[in-house]
Simulated assay, not measured.
Amino acid sequence: MSTLRTDYSIERLHERQQGKLPDLLGVRVIALKEGSLTAELTVRSDLLAPNGFLHAATVIGLADTSCGYACWAHLPQTARNFTTIELKSNFLGTCTEGTIRAVAKSVHLGRTTQVWDATVSVPDGKTIALFRCTQMVLY
């Protein structure tokens, strides 16, 4: 079973995202601990769909980034990286402003695969999406 690596920090994750999609979305990691990671982003007009509501891709971007960063921080010591092999999301609500938060939690931290669940919510605690992804650990 993998555990949280001491060589990964919130600062290191933020450095790695510079100029990449998580940076464009405005993802901010706010907590990293054993078996979980919490991140958020501020909803902006350019992250909305043409119908005026939060674009599903924005929600998936936050959830997938949260799970991916958590996976990175929990890779086995001899692993060199990971890649997503499956993801799924269910949308339960939406928003048009404010901040959304994703809490990623480990379900399985194996030597060859990891499974992560993320719950995306708005500030009042209402869940707007449930997300699951499976990561293949690369050696």
Rank of each mutant, 00 (worst) to 15 (best):
Gly52Gln: 03
Leu62Ala: 05
Asp23Lys: 06
Leu41Gln: 09
His74Leu: 02
Cys95His: 04
Asp124Val: 02
Phe82Val: 02
Leu92Tyr: 13
Gln18Val: 15
Pro22Cys: 08
Met1Ala: 13
Lys88Val: 07
Leu4Ala: 07
Ala49Glu: 11
Ser106Thr: 13
Asp124Cys: 09
Leu41Ile: 10
Glu97Ala: 15
Trp72Thr: 14
Val122Asn: 03
Leu138Cys: 06
Tyr139Gly: 14
Ala39Asn: 04
Val122Lys: 09
Glu40Gln: 14
Met136Asn: 10
Thr84Phe: 05
Leu41Phe: 05
Cys133Trp: 01
Glu34Leu: 02
Gln135Asp: 11
Ser2Leu: 03
Lys126Cys: 09
Thr127Leu: 07
Ala79Thr: 00
Phe91Leu: 09
Leu138Ala: 04
Cys67Glu: 06
Ala118Arg: 01
Arg5Phe: 01
Tyr8Thr: 15
Ala79His: 00
Gln114Trp: 02
Tyr69Leu: 12
Thr94Pro: 05
Glu97Pro: 08
Ala102Thr: 02
Gly68Gln: 01
Arg101Leu: 09
His14Asn: 05
Met1Gln: 11
Gly19Tyr: 07
Gly52Glu: 03
Ala129Thr: 04
Cys71Val: 13
Leu87Ser: 12
Leu75Cys: 01
Leu41His: 07
Leu62Trp: 05
Val115Leu: 10
Asn81Glu: 12
His14Thr: 04
Ile100Lys: 00
Val43Leu: 07
Ala56Thr: 11
Ala79Arg: 00
Cys133Lys: 11
Glu34Ile: 00
Gly35Trp: 03
Gln135Ala: 14
Arg101Ser: 12
Pro50Ile: 07
Lys105Ala: 13
Val59Thr: 13
Ser45Thr: 15
Lys105Cys: 13
Ile128Trp: 01
Met136Gly: 05
Tyr8Arg: 10
Lys126Asn: 12
Val43Phe: 09
Gln17Tyr: 09
Cys95Leu: 10
Gly93Thr: 00
Leu24Lys: 15
Lys88Trp: 10
Asp124Phe: 08
Lys105Phe: 06
